[in-house]
């Protein structure tokens, strides 16, 4: 399933990042967002969701949330 459908507060393991944008992929990697790592959706908001990766909070938009397979 996609991150967009994740249940709030539940920890998921990232399966894949579906993007052709290699730089974005590398950037997400440096934040600790890559397949095999865990990710938690803290809350869903209108434009996307608030996620917890490693020990930081980020807001990502729906397009990006749609590219993260968990």
């Amino acid at each position: 399933m996609k991150l967009i459908d994740a249940i709030e507060g539940q920890e998921y393991v990232i399966q894949d990042i579906e993007t052709d944008d290699e730089e974005l992929d590398a950037f997400l990697f440096s934040l600790g967002c890559y397949s095999g790592e865990t990710i938690t959706v803290v809350s869903h908001i209108k434009s996307g969701c608030v996620v917890s990766i490693k020990d930081a909070r980020y807001t990502i938009d729906n397009q990006l949330a749609d590219a993260i397979v968990i």
Binding site: D21, L24, G48, A56, Y58, T59, D61, Q63, L64
Partner: peptide, 8 residues
């Protein structure tokens, strides 16, 4: 497609 990510 443009992606938006920002640290909180």
């Amino acid at each position: 497609k443009s992606f938006f990510i920002i640290e909180l």
